[in-house]
Design a protein around this nucleic acid. Sequence first.
DNA 1: TTGTAAGCGTTATCAA
DNA 2: TTGATAACGCTTACAA
Lengths: 323, 323
Amino acid sequence: MPGPTRAPTLADVAAAAGVSLSTASLTFSGNKPVSEATRERVLSAAASLGWTGPNPLGRSLRRGRSGVVGIAVGQLSTAFRDPAALPMLDAVSEVLGAAGLGLLLMGDDEEHARLPLDAVIYDICGRDDWGPYGELVAREVPLVVVEGPSWPGTTFIDIDHRGGAAALAAHLHDLGHRRVATLTLEASHPQREREAGLREVFPRASVVGACASDLAEAQRLAADFLSADPGVTAIVCQSDVQAAGVVLEARRRGLDVPSDLSVAGFDGVATPWLDLSLTTVVQPLVAKGRATAEAVLARISGADVDDVVLPVELRVGDSTGPA
Amino acid sequence: MPGPTRAPTLADVAAAAGVSLSTASLTFSGNKPVSEATRERVLSAAASLGWTGPNPLGRSLRRGRSGVVGIAVGQLSTAFRDPAALPMLDAVSEVLGAAGLGLLLMGDDEEHARLPLDAVIYDICGRDDWGPYGELVAREVPLVVVEGPSWPGTTFIDIDHRGGAAALAAHLHDLGHRRVATLTLEASHPQREREAGLREVFPRASVVGACASDLAEAQRLAADFLSADPGVTAIVCQSDVQAAGVVLEARRRGLDVPSDLSVAGFDGVATPWLDLSLTTVVQPLVAKGRATAEAVLARISGADVDDVVLPVELRVGDSTGPA
DNA sequence: TTGTAAGCGTTATCAA
DNA sequence: TTGATAACGCTTACAA
């Protein structure tokens, strides 16, 4: 009995089948025709040796591609707790998966930039700098940025933050609201754009505070703000989760939504634990994911890719009413 | 001006620095000492050529490792919507990241099994079969299974489902409950174990229905069950999200929790949108993630690894009371 | 301390 | 339709 033998390679298969290495390769890749007779000989040789397909490492080196696409989403638990992140991620994964590519979760350290990546998706909307950026650019790894900072040499996928925010603001203005406050995100491209849209209508809107898309944090900020009671009649949030937090806090203080306070969100995701349909700006999460993945595929294949800005849509629910 | 030149390789750097390929390699890997003089020559040659480090593809082939670990979690949006999944994933990612490894999200198709993976984590608790399994086994890719089916040749990371369920059942029995129902998961290792634990105390517990850890679905099942009104005084759920759904539905029908109906969960995650602390079985999510990642590291390094079963803890909240 | 040379496992080019 | 051969870019014995 031999000791622990090394895994068989394509060369072993070729030898066992009595054909050349290139013929064996062709048999599996199908890149050129192979006669039925040899094909069978090769296949049975592979089967008897337990060879299950080309070694991904050798294949990757030869083809110059790993089949792995990195995606940076920030801290995982934070990013994925945001319900708006998931449909987008699903869509990205589906499109890339159909092309045989896998998605690798990247952190902030430059370690991950040294992994074999064919392209990278930057989807940390809240951050304008990122450790691995320089290294990836130097290595000429295609970079697709979602709702992100303006970096040279990258492809951008964005939504119409500004237009959506402005439409929502107009809706509130139509309802008679004049004193409006906004619960913001940390400084970031989406936040800057949305705030600009809001201020097209309410130049003097006050600020409740800034936080991520986090229910408890939004609730806390709303508590402080409502205690100070500046007499605002509507609060514009930057996510439905934030909006839900504000609604819960308002109710805790005996305020009715929307008769005492109007609250608006952003994203258009489901909040099944809230017995109220939020007025919100619906963004096309799946389309955003698809567009992102398609940009990745195009960039990998070396094509030029245009930036994308997707439209959003105001959806009026039961959380906003007359001032 | 030359045309689009190919990216520089280590060989180019070596040539430019006037040293051999191996010396150049050593300069960057640090695996053997290099004189200060040559080191500087090599570094400046690299800098002037714009060489930013070893090409991951070449490196991977040579070392037989890609640095990529696959993780199968099922449908992404479903898996990550479960709040119990995230702390675990975070812990896995942290430990693997510290070792320079990245996490690749795997789907169900065998395509992903052809990617360059150093190991795979199977974390789809609800599924007993999986397409890529056979291929991975054939390729001898180390496989770590979390709360999963008993597959040969794999390492298992589990929690004490049965003990936790039994402890919870005992708690309800102590409170005087005799007619108990359970909202289950789809047939799976965790479900089988937990049901066995429950039935140690309540052999004749009835079944509300089976669903994933999904609020809306749990609510729907609870609605049907409570309409039939079989007079149960407590419902044992398999996640805190399910339990929250049951609580919301009970209240919608005017039942008070816990005075009219006791409800228990599993997991011990935060439900900030619920104004009630759930009685639940707390599982060590972070420890589970760490143990998983450590098993992966050990398996990659070729070590033998013992299976792990982590303890759980009953946490009594305000959702259970006297029958 | 540095250099030579042999692969890692595959695919692609070119000729036969 | 098949075969010989040369890369792909790197790391690591082994020698000097």
